[in-house]
């Protein structure tokens, strides 16, 4: 009766949960951040694949992933796979969240905290996959996942560089970064000189006013 086979989804969530919790255990910096949002429940609806996943931050060292949850969520976000991929890899999740097509209900704090904790982790997917599916299958899937993530990172960097080059060189729509920095420096320099000139003028005006004032 459900659209997705719950066993398949459970397999993916179990592997992700185990990898995430192992990584959290080994990343003491994340404990304080997670502690601040512990007890919160996030719902994530990915409209592209008609899938909803729930993330409960149980404690500062434990995160629970679920395919089904009947509790009210503290935060619920809805968006496409592309939106969430952009958010997951963003250096500025708050800005990405505002500028993306993601719909948000509730507080964004726990979502941004979790994104920042995950973004800083280098998760080893092999151990939980091997534990879940055995040595042979688990290793093959982990290897495929590593290749995919490497490809994804490479593709992202390459796409960013090519888009940037097109906008600057071919389209002439945006100035190169170095040129822009030089422009900003020049503006800064003009602003400082203007301030100094203004200050000099004010001093001279004050002196002139003092001379004109009868003793």
């Amino acid at each position: 009766m459900t659209q997705h086979d719950p066993a398949l989804l459970s397999a993916a969530l179990a592997a992700a949960e185990q990898a995430l919790n192992q990584a959290v255990t080994l990343a003491p910096y994340s404990h304080q951040e997670l502690d601040a949002v512990s007890g919160t429940l996030l719902g994530i609806e990915i409209t592209t694949v008609d899938l909803t996943v729930y993330i409960e931050i149980v404690t500062d060292t434990e995160v629970r992933l679920m395919a089904h949850c009947e509790r009210d969520t503290d935060t619920f976000v809805r968006g496409t796979l592309e939106d969430f991929a952009a958010l997951a890899t963003s250096y500025d999740p708050a800005a990405t969240l505002i500028n993306s097509g993601i719909e948000l209900e509730g507080s964004s704090t726990s979502l941004i905290t979790l994104q920042q904790v995950i973004a800083r982790m280098e998760i080893d997917w092999e151990a939980p996959l091997v534990e879940l599916l055995g040595d042979v299958v688990g290793h093959q899937i982990a290897e495929g996942l590593r290749r995919f993530l490497r490809w994804g990172e490479g593709a992202r960097t390459s796409l960013k560089r090519q888009v940037s080059e097109y906008l600057q060189e071919e389209g002439g729509l945006t100035p190169p970064k170095a040129e822009l920095e030089h422009f900003y420096d020049a503006v800064q320099s003009v602003a400082m000189r203007t301030e100094r000139a203004q200050s000099q003028v004010e001093k001279l005006l004050a002196k002139a006013a003092a001379r004109e004032t009868p003793q």
């Binding site: 066993a7 397999a11 089904h68 949850c69």
Partner: peptide, 18 residues
């Protein structure tokens, strides 16, 4: 084939135990 753990995991989720 080891999948009973996943079936049970979903059962626990559906129980909404609190």
């Amino acid at each position: 084939g080891g999948v009973h753990r996943l079936w049970k995991r979903y059962t626990i989720e559906l129980s909404a135990a609190r």
